[in-house]
Amino acid sequence: MSHIHFPDGVLPIWLWGSGFIVAILVGLILFRFAKREEWIRHLPLLGMMSAAMILGASVEIVPIAYHINLTVISGILLGPSLIFLATFVVNVILALFGHGGITVIGLNTLTLSIEGVLGYFLFRILWRLTRRLMPAIFLATFLALLCSTLSMIGVVSLGASHYEELIHHEDEKGIFEFKLLKDKVGHPVEGATREKVNLKRFMAIVLPLGLIGWILEGMITSLIGRYIHRMRPDLLRLERGTQ
């Protein structure tokens, strides 16, 4: 839910192209400043956590079109820079199984990594403040999912003019489209067609369904956190304190 399950060809080229550029730039910056040996040491762990995220994504709660992401727990375990690479890898492999388009990999990486990175930092802050593991993980997951869903809606709304073109394609002639940039502002037909794209309706569907998903994933993530804390507390790298 919190990332875009759009197929290829729905979002405008300028949008998914920018997504790729920003994602690659962020990846390069992280790679430039990270300790190379540390990253290589953690490659198998990164692979395992990415695989767990992929398996989580295959558990589909069909009535609400939601699947568990496990991004926040992966973020907590991997740290902020490795979770970015992990989300990139997860999106490439999911796209290879037809789960989300190949062209939206960049945008999906950005929205999913917001979830992982934010989840990591929120958990650390909440843990320091409350020293209660389950509420800290639940709140961190809930807020991170809320933010990433809002960013996904933001991305969807950026492509509104492109959807209008697709909707009103019947009125036009031609088989192909070659538009790299958005239409010029002030196009005479634009005002008349904009009403057809209903983003409010989209939000009215996505946000309530998302709310159920965020609560569900928050509970599952906090229970997973509790299980890991019991079995391998070292993995959470917590300072000493009560649960």
């Binding site: 762990l45 767990a52 599952i220």
Partner: peptide, 23 residues
Amino acid sequence: LVNISNAFGHLIIKGIDASEKMY
């Protein structure tokens, strides 16, 4: 919910153990 979460937790821990051996 507890059962499914424990299953995922188990999966993650087993996965991490396997990743350490793999490395």
